[in-house]
Design a protein around this nucleic acid. Structure first.
Length: 503
RNA sequence: GGUCCGUUCGUCUAGGGGUUAGGACACGUCCCUUUCACGGAUGAAACACGGGUUCGAUUCCCGUACGGACUACCA
């Protein structure tokens, strides 16, 4: 078997949906495993929906999750251009060629006329039943059609679907899928503006770029019959790619597939990266901004609709490449489970070493104005690591490692603080001031000895120590926190606590 | 409405003609810890339904129900 060539072909109509990232991932895994080629093609044939910046967004997203194309927009390659708007003339040529071959025709019906027909006729379809009554070259004849085309009349080119044939698609995921050509409409291939529709551009490009496998979302399954007809019409059936239609990613709750709006609706990221729209409403954060590690996102996405079998569920990119197989892709829609995504993130953060995490957390800390040494950051990370879910938690949940306690857990204070305790606390603070070796273990020994000498229970004083240091009853071990904070800061916080209670 | 696709714990899924139907997330309980988490243990939790085929079906076939996608000069 020759090396496979696959493509990821998003449309730059805005931020790349997380489902798109999964499609890219599966294509990438397949290509990598087989030593094939992964191509990025930009399908920007709809001028009306083109969004500036979307293309860069797509590329940056792929970079972030580590799915670098071998060829494509921004990555070079010898089968370019890889942006469909730069290939307009190619499609035009092939569209006309298909007319010559008798598999397509000119149609002069205006969108307004067609809309009127749809209003007037229930389930109106432009097909073998209706095309003979409409303004196209099949009815008008070649001479008149040529005259109108030459005269500059607006026209589209439509696929001429011959009725009466069964079109079989051997989908690698779904098996044999059959469509009756009589049920198919005469799809527009070339629009009035001279741009191709998806159907034409896709087939022409996949053929010209020698694509061997088309791995795309299930929403394309219904139009695949048209695509097969196009391959046949052009005489390219022998090299037609194999199709695999992926199950869709569904909303976290409710019905239907995950949509861009669900992000705002459920307060969860549905895009890899943040997006700056024209307005606040059109702007949103992505998985990256939420504090996800790209490898966690990849792992989560890989398992949304695919599993190699067995009980393993944490996979590195290398393992995914090794284990991936189209046969193991599921057939039914996979619900987007954000809790699961979070749990993967947590696992990956735990598994990552402190130094690597520090590199990622440093920008977050600096954005908050925290100036810290590598050594300190590393210690802070090691302290917090096991209780964070997101990278951002290090500087948000664990803010107290970088700045003074903002507020105290007054409820607990109310219960535990009294004049007796206050005296002990003050004494303890003085004792702490005498420690030179500020290490967690020694500190703990000393404090516990002190507690014993005083004849009080650890529970009387430890919680207060904790609140003094971090403000809350949640968080890392007290003595380790003290060590990371250092002697000066620890003392300052103990005194601040005393001052706080004096008020 | 039409066409096509699908259906194993709440969710992601493993499995496959004879299994105590497995794992993960989430949830409950317990242990660890005088915090929170992590970790460990444990519990509850599924083969949509109805017919076939078969000695036997969750697994194969057919229907039904339900879900989904598509049905644009959008991709």
């Amino acid at each position: 078997m020759t090396k496979p060539r696959v493509r990821f072909a998003p449309s730059p109509t805005g931020a790349l949906h997380i489902g798109g990232v999964r499609t890219a991932l599966y294509n990438y895994l397949f290509a990598r495993q087989k030593g094939g080629t992964f191509i990025l093609r930009i399908e920007d044939t709809d001028q009306g929906r083109y969004v500036p910046g979307a293309e860069d967004y797509i590329i940056e997203s792929l970079r972030w999750v580590g799915l670098l194309p071998d060829e494509g927009v921004g990555f070079g390659g010898s089968d370019g251009p890889y942006r469909q708007s730069d290939r307009k003339e190619i499609y035009k040529k092939y569209a006309h060629e298909l007319v010559q071959r008798g598999h397509a025709y000119y149609a002069f019906d205006t969108p307004v006329e067609l809309e009127a027909l749809r209003q007037a006729t229930e389930n109106f379809t432009y097909n073998h039943l209706t095309r003979n009554d409409l303004a196209n070259s099949l009815m008008l004849g070649d001479a008149e059609s040529q005259r109108r085309v030459a005269a500059g009349d607006p026209f589209v080119i439509r696929l001429k679907v011959e009725p009466g044939q069964s079109i079989h698609i051997q989908d690698l995921i779904r098996g044999d899928v059959v469509f009756e050509s009589s049920e198919l409409d005469d799809k527009v291939l070339l629009k009035t503006d001279g741009m191709p529709t998806y159907h034409l551009a896709n087939i022409v490009d996949d053929h010209l770029m020698r694509i061997t496998h088309v791995i795309r979302g299930e929403e394309w399954l219904p139009s695949t019959a048209h695509h097969v007809l196009l391959y046949r019409g052009f005489g390219w059936e022998a090299t037609m790619p194999k199709f695999s239609h992926l199950p869709l990613i569904m909303k976290p709750v409710g019905n239907g597939k995950l949509s861009k709006r669900d992000g705002a609706k459920f307060g969860i990221p549905v895009f890899p990266l943040g997006w700056k729209g024209e307005t606040e409403e059109e702007s949103f954060g992505g998985f990256r901004e939420a504090g996800f590690l790209p490898e966690a996102v990849v792992n989560f996405l890989a398992l949304l609709g695919w599993h190699p079998g067995g009980d393993q569920d944490v996979f590195s990119m290398e393992e995914l490449i090794q284990l991936f197989s189209i046969e193991h892709i599921g057939k039914s829609g996979a619900r987007f489970d954000y809790e699961k995504a979070k749990s993967f993130n947590q696992k990956y953060i735990h598994a990552k070493d402190d130094a690597a995490l520090a590199t990622l957390v440093r920008p977050l800390a600096e954005a908050k104005g925290y100036q810290v040494s590598d050594e300190f950051l590393s210690k802070a990370i090691s302290l917090m690591k096991e209780r964070v879910t997101f990278l951002t938690d290090f500087v948000e949940m664990g803010y107290y490692l970088f700045e003074p306690v903002r507020n105290y857990d007054e409820e607990t204070l109310q219960k535990r603080w009294n004049s007796d305790v206050a005296a002990v606390f003050a004494e303890l603070t003085e004792k702490v001031a005498t420690f030179d070796l500020f290490k967690a273990a020694e500190l703990e020994d000393a404090v516990k000895t002190f507690i014993q000498e005083k004849g009080i229970k650890p529970g009387d004083i430890l919680p207060l120590l904790r609140i003094a240091l971090v403000g809350t009853m949640k968080g890392p071990a007290v003595f380790e926190t003290a060590e990371v904070l250092g002697k000066a800061e620890t003392l300052a916080r103990l005194k601040a606590m005393i001052d706080h209670k004096k008020e």
